[in-house]
Amino acid sequence: MTQTAEGKALSRERLLSAYRMMRTIREFEERVHAEFATGEIPGFVHLYAGEEASAAGVCINLDDRDTIASTHRGHGHCIARGVDVGEMMAEIYGRKTGSCHGKGGSMHIADLSKGMLGANGIVGGGPPLICGAALAAKIKGTGGVGVAFFGDGGSNQGTTLESMNLASVWNLPAIFVAENNGYAETTSSTWSVASDNIADRAAGFGMPGVIVDGFDFFAVHETASEAIARARAGGGPTLIEMKFTRYYGHFEGDQQTYRADEVAHARAELDCLKRFAGLVTQTGELTRADLDAVDADVAVLIDQAVEEAQAAPLPTAADLLTDVYVRY
């Protein structure tokens, strides 16, 4: 089932929305990178900078019926799904005003009201959740889909492989998005992924597997929109493998001695935001002024988020006993 040319075309509003999503993710991550270095942010953060086209190109096709599950590197997915940026920043700062009242931190940001089942501290933790969400959508007949984002490390987890099997067996409206940024923590995916291309595994589960240039918003969007339309229409699951590079280490503080300097090349030549801006201004779909206006808005938004997070109260000892299943 393919969509019509009209269905695929991106309106001016959608293009602006895509750019805003990607720019917000980038600014958010660059700012967290800078603020983390001050020592004010507790715990670990794993930055999504460089991978923005994946979250935006997939999530811009989703609506209220849909659910996503994320990874350690979850800020981009949260923003693309519409989680409040101020609450996210507060959560990362461990403040009471955060999405999870400051008790989750970067790796556990969740907002069920946005269909965002959470960033996840468990590698390969998202795909089983998405099978559940997709099964619910199928039984209820909502037309909703579930999207599991996972990394090249997560692609080797039994949970991910079992989920792909189950999704095929039950013909679930589930999309598996393998974000292959080349390294699972410090281990190269060319060494650790036996089939080399994660997408090749789809054939074994009887689902389509597609490799996409993860730096190219338009390639991601086109592929994801087809996969999602197919899933909504009862066509079953798809595996999409994004190939790209993360701009920062596995976590902030990672010395990255395991990789050559591939980031400078990616930032200069492949960057999703630069590429998007170049393409839409070349075709005349958007102007540089349109994009600059978004950049200015986003800068204010991120400044505000940081200021408010820093000013917000920390949880109190009594908060330890709220939002838990067992009371002591």
């Binding site: 089939s195 090749d200 087809e226």
Partner: peptide
């Protein structure tokens, strides 16, 4: 070419998969 036979036609048509 390690990437041949991997594009969107696996999804929108029933194009073949040629494993590595």
């Amino acid at each position: 070419n390690p990437l041949s036979g991997r594009d969107i036609r696996r999804l929108v048509t029933q194009a073949s998969v040629f494993p590595t």
